[in-house]
Computed example of a mutant assay.
Amino acid sequence: MNDFTHRIAQAKKVIEGAEYILLGGGAGLSAAAGIEYGGERFRRNFAPFIERYGLTDMYTSGFYPFRTQEERWAYWAKHISLNRYEVGTTELYLSLKQLVQGKKHFVITTNVDSQFEKAGFPPDKIFEVQGNYGYLQCAKGYHDRVYGNEGLVKEMINKTVDCKIPTELVPKCPVCGENMDPHLRINQYFVQDEKWYRLNEAYNKFLQESDGKRIVYLELGVGFNTPAIMRYPFERLTYHNINATLVRFNKDNPEGFVENKDKTIAFSENMHEVVSAIIS
């Protein structure tokens, strides 16, 4: 039995024997599912913006200092639409849903594209720590409410001319009248609304319920951009629970804490192929 086959068998065994599964979804998960922020996908969808502003990828473009709100929202409307509304449910996320079927499970994710919910994971079991593309918030966080944006985003795209939206479509905060932002944790003004706190509480409750139980921490494409949210906590939780196993999918950094070496099953191979192999 080769090493890959052995790891697949190990992962299948611990997942089948688990009482609980905690999924941690990072940027590498959605990239593996085909939602890539650079390369051909970026060039194909943002050609006018690339030509005008010299943009190189969707991640860094989110921090570009657009001169006007009309230009900024022409870009962001396309960014949000492409990654939240135009992309359907991906096969990888559907496979993950199948993988945890019948198990007590919960999702914590830094991804903001709603792929877990699209794949059928219950909304009350998905903690989106960094926000969601589907909402807007007051840019200064003056109040703790977020606003659905699908209709507005579609109108912005339909009326974009020369990389600008009409001034009347620039979103303004209904409370203070100032600018709005996508609901993303990009600065200190990120809004943690009632739903955010409710799901944070649900996440902590899941951790308490699963403490000491047979649990698999399924870490999916989590890098070192925000390691304190999932990567380090998953290592710590694994270390302190004799019945825990960490299953890590990471193309570039599969290695983990040496203390958890015997309790970690790591994969750097194609994530979709690995998950499919575990299911079969």
Score class of each variant (00 low, 15 high):
Gly54Arg: 01
Ile8Leu: 15
Lys205Glu: 12
Pro174Ile: 14
Gly39Cys: 08
Phe224Thr: 11
Leu218Trp: 05
Asn45Leu: 08
Phe190Leu: 11
Lys97Tyr: 06
Glu201Asp: 15
Tyr203Val: 02
Gly26Glu: 04
Glu255Phe: 08
Asp144Thr: 13
Val100Trp: 05
Met230Tyr: 10
Asn260Leu: 11
Val222Phe: 10
Arg67Lys: 13
Thr68Pro: 09
Lys172Cys: 10
Leu220Tyr: 03
His240Asn: 14
Val191Gly: 09
Val222Tyr: 06
Ala11Gln: 01
Glu71Cys: 07
Glu178Thr: 08
Ile215Phe: 04
Arg7Cys: 09
Gly131Lys: 01
Phe190Asp: 11
Met156Gln: 04
Met180Arg: 01
Gln101Leu: 09
Val87Met: 04
Arg248Pro: 02
Ser210Gln: 08
Asn158Arg: 14
Pro174Trp: 13
Asn241Asp: 12
Asn204Ala: 11
Ser276Pro: 06
Gly134His: 02
Gln188Cys: 07
Val222Pro: 02
Asn149Trp: 03
Leu246Gly: 12
Glu128Asn: 15
Thr90Ala: 04
Glu259Gly: 00
Phe49Arg: 01
Glu209Cys: 06
Tyr217Asn: 13
Val175Glu: 15
Tyr197Arg: 14
Val161Met: 10
Pro254Leu: 13
Asn241Tyr: 04
Phe49Cys: 01
Arg52Lys: 15
His183Phe: 07
Thr56Gly: 08
Tyr75Arg: 00
Ala33Ser: 12
Arg198Gly: 02
Gly120Met: 07
Gly212Trp: 01
Ser81Leu: 04
Tyr37Glu: 02
Val258Met: 14
Cys138Thr: 06
Arg214Pro: 02
Lys104Glu: 08
Asp211Pro: 00
Leu199Glu: 05
Leu99Gln: 10
Tyr232Gln: 12
Phe46Gln: 01
Tyr37Thr: 03
Phe224His: 11
Val14Asp: 04
Glu71Arg: 05
Leu82Met: 10
Glu71Met: 07
Leu136Pro: 02
Met180Phe: 08
Lys154Tyr: 04
Glu259Leu: 15
Ser81Arg: 01
Pro122Ala: 13
Glu235Cys: 06
His143Phe: 12
Glu70Thr: 07
Asp193Lys: 13
Glu19Val: 03
Asp211Arg: 15
Asp181Pro: 00
Pro65Leu: 11
Glu273Arg: 06
Val216His: 02
Tyr217Arg: 09
Thr5Gly: 02
Gly151Glu: 15
Arg214Gln: 12
Glu155Ser: 05
Tyr197Lys: 13
Tyr189Arg: 05
Val175Trp: 08
Pro65Glu: 09
Val153Cys: 02
Pro65Ile: 12
Tyr239Glu: 14
Ile278Gly: 07
Arg236Thr: 09
Ala32Thr: 03
Arg236Lys: 14
Tyr37Trp: 08
Ala266Phe: 00
Arg7Phe: 04
Cys163Gln: 03
Met156Phe: 03
Gly177Arg: 09
Gly177Leu: 14
Arg41Ile: 05
Ala202Phe: 11
Tyr20Arg: 10
Thr160Phe: 03
Pro227Asn: 14
Gly134Arg: 02
Lys261Pro: 00
Leu94Gln: 12
Leu55Val: 07
Phe224Glu: 06
Tyr203Ala: 05
